[in-house]
Design a protein around this nucleic acid. Structure first.
Lengths: 210, 210
DNA sequence: TAGATTGTTAATCGATTAACAATC
DNA sequence: TAGATTGTTAATCGATTAACAATC
């Protein structure tokens, strides 16, 4: 169960390789070396080699990696070629945005239903996904075996909803709120707060002399 | 111009402190210590002290920090209490999502206009923001002195648009695409690709034994 | 005063980068 | 064979954590 975990910086970079590889495969390039990848993605060739090695793929000295094989192995490793079903909780601005956002499919993510407490939102269909009454969450997790919960509620209810999700048997929460979730260690939490990025961007802008 | 740059991990954590502090200020708590903050945000007290020190705020032994002052200094430091105007390029799913997303205002970000090449989108008003013809971008940056560009185009045009933004005098690009942008060093790029987070989440889920 | 907390300096930890042997 | 590239092991770098003196 506990294979050596791949570091978060490495995991974050892997999709970047994947998108680049798809682009060059479209151009008919069948072999690609780490130095060339590095040059295109602004990073060290050694790091490319190390990052790619986590998938178990082998390259050939002098030639590099097989583009197609590398794409396949990365998709496999990241789970992008599977269908990972998810529930979305909170059909507000960000929630509906994510429902309409089609790219998730290329990440193997499929939002199978959204939930909200607002009766004005319940029953709506956004991007092919229905907004259901939040009270039905327990019922549906029991039937569908969905493992991922996407949390896009207001901050002040995030903790309560997260606890509900855990009680429903959800195994991973993609947290878009600014709240720090207190939940058991065996449930994976991926925090993705827009404010963190805005903070870095705005501060760097100040640093650069306005 | 070059004050010692605050590390990215620290900058990313600062908004978390801010949201927690606002919450407890609403509860009437006027002083807060690093150990208490750490306990609530699941991190080390020493790290809290170090992180907060970047704002220049001073705490008092035995008592802690002044909640109000801390909030103010963090907002100031991050630029959240200013109005940072931004253009958004690419009014697709993610783009319109970000336009409708109201929370930006609490980050001091204001999208003043969006641009697209699709005549079906041009002229629309989403969340109070007009979608303009991409060809007018040059004209408007010249007049408005906007420094931030939010990039939500398809991946394959990201590089071209980024170059246009640089030529328009944009100083910082918030890149939501999966493309690696090649632009001059003096322009700040903040990459925020959903796929990176999805990668971490899905892989951690696999690691945990499905 | 006693004790908790700040704030700084040192130690640890982990990720990135460099060095180099193996290999095609 | 010669030379470029992989892949591993060692060195470096930076962030986190620990230790501790200063302070209220």
């Amino acid at each position: 169960m506990k294979n050596k975990q791949v570091s978060e910086p490495t995991l974050r970079r892997l999709p970047g390789y994947l998108f680049f590889l798809r682009k060059i495969m479209d151009q008919g390039i069948v072999n690609i070396s780490a130095p060339v990848i590095g040059r295109n993605l602004n990073c060290d060739a050694t790091q490319v080699v190390k990052d790619l090695s986590v998938t178990g793929i082998k390259g050939r000295p002098r030639i590099g990696y097989d583009t197609y094989e590398l794409i396949h192995d990365l998709e496999e490793f990241l789970g992008f070629n599977r269908t990972n079903e998810a529930f979305l909780i909170g059909a507000g601005n960000l929630g509906t945005a994510l429902m309409a956002y089609q790219e998730h499919q290329s990440l193997g993510l499929k939002i199978v239903a959204a939930f909200d407490v607002d009766s004005n939102k319940i029953g709506k269909n956004i991007g092919g996904i229905y907004v259901l009454d939040y009270n039905r969450l327990f019922h549906l997790t029991g039937r569908l075996d969905v493992k991922i919960g996407i949390l896009t509620t207001p901050n002040h209810v995030a903790q309560d909803v997260a606890e509900d999700l855990v009680n429903c048997g959800i195994k991973a929460i993609w947290n878009f709120t600014s709240a720090t979730l207190e939940i058991p260690d065996n449930v994976i939490v991926q925090n993705t707060s827009m404010s963190s990025y805005a903070a870095v961007l705005l501060r760097r802008l100040s640093d650069s002399g306005q």
